[in-house]
Write a protein that binds this DNA or RNA. Structure first.
Lengths: 175, 175
DNA sequence: ATATATATCTTAGTCACTAAGAGATTTAGC
DNA sequence: GCTAAATCTCTTAGTGACTAAGATATATAT
């Protein structure tokens, strides 16, 4: 097999392996939501709150892509479950800040422990230099996917007759 | 900073970077479904069909975790959209095989082109040896997440009083 | 002041999902 | 072979999260 062919095969394997692991990651998240007894997007919001801390309802809508009406429902459910609290902003009384209730949120955090442990087990076999490579890739990959997402969204906003044709993708391997 | 501390910090960065990029991957998938005008799980089924080829309705239910009733709905919608066909198995007439309609499915495949291009741009900066490392990690990571998923599911099946306590997770960094 | 903008919530209606079970076919036990 | 149990898909009724549109309350601009 020629040099560039070997690389092409490697890239295809890589693409498939990443798709598989990413799909499994989604499944893990669904299982967490299931065990926690909350909806999928409720968990997503908990995650955002975990990352960003104190966040307005509007920003949750922005980040999740849900309507503000849907966010009202999300926060209602999370509040009823004791996971978050609403706090009116005193400076601008239209705004509602959502904050996590740490003790309750920790119970959800625990559900990620199996995943963390599994990943730490995997990572333990890598040298620091290798880990740095993985980190670099994770960051660059993130940027790439982000760019691809807005490219695709842009494609959606473009009127059909003006859309540049996307190049064809390989057919299923088992047709 | 000590050697092991540097590594711990690296691991934490890594975890976060992977979470971010994986979340973005989910978003890309949702956008694809949106542009294609089909539901999220409809797209997931298309993906499975793409991977496995000819598949029974029951197997789709198995893989997606949906009920068979829900799969009936999925296949109804996909069939109406001209993306798949139902084919009764002649050997066992209870079974219904689902097959993709290649020409129609290709249109969906095209929506992954921006993602593929972005990833190829990222990968182009890596040596073959580095790509092999990424592939190794993707495969090991997949196995890790898979194991973690069934561990978490097992936790769900265990009666609450018998559940081993999962270790605590770090609190949000911005409390 | 009045108008416009912003932020959240409400309401009505839609759509995908589950649970339970019906219908059709196959497999197993006798 | 015939009956009973098992398997596979579909149907039905009901639920819950979502959207779109607009109501409400507060803030900003002219």
């Amino acid at each position: 097999m020629s040099r560039t062919k070997a690389r092409a095969a490697l890239l295809q394997e890589l693409e498939e392996a990443m798709r598989r692991s990413s799909a499994q990651g989604v499944l893990y998240g669904q299982t967490v939501a299931n065990v926690a007894g909350i909806a999928n997007s409720d968990l997503e919001c908990m995650d955002i709150l975990h990352l960003e801390g104190r966040v307005t309802a509007g920003r949750l809508a922005e980040v999740t892509g849900l309507t503000t009406g849907a966010i009202t429902g999300v926060v209602d459910r999370l509040e009823k479950a004791g996971l978050v609290r609403r706090e009116r902003d005193e400076g601008d009384r239209r705004k509602v800040f959502i904050t996590v209730v740490p003790e309750a949120a920790m119970k959800i955090g625990e559900l990620y422990v199996p995943l963390q442990q599994a990943m730490e087990r995997v990572w333990s076999a890598y040298s620091e230099e290798e880990l740095r490579l993985l980190l670099r890739f994770a960051n660059e990959g993130y940027k790439g996917v982000l760019a691809a997402t807005s490219a695709l969204k842009g494609h959606l906003d473009t009127p059909p007759e003006k859309r540049p044709d996307l190049k064809m993708r390989k057919l299923p391997r088992r047709p």
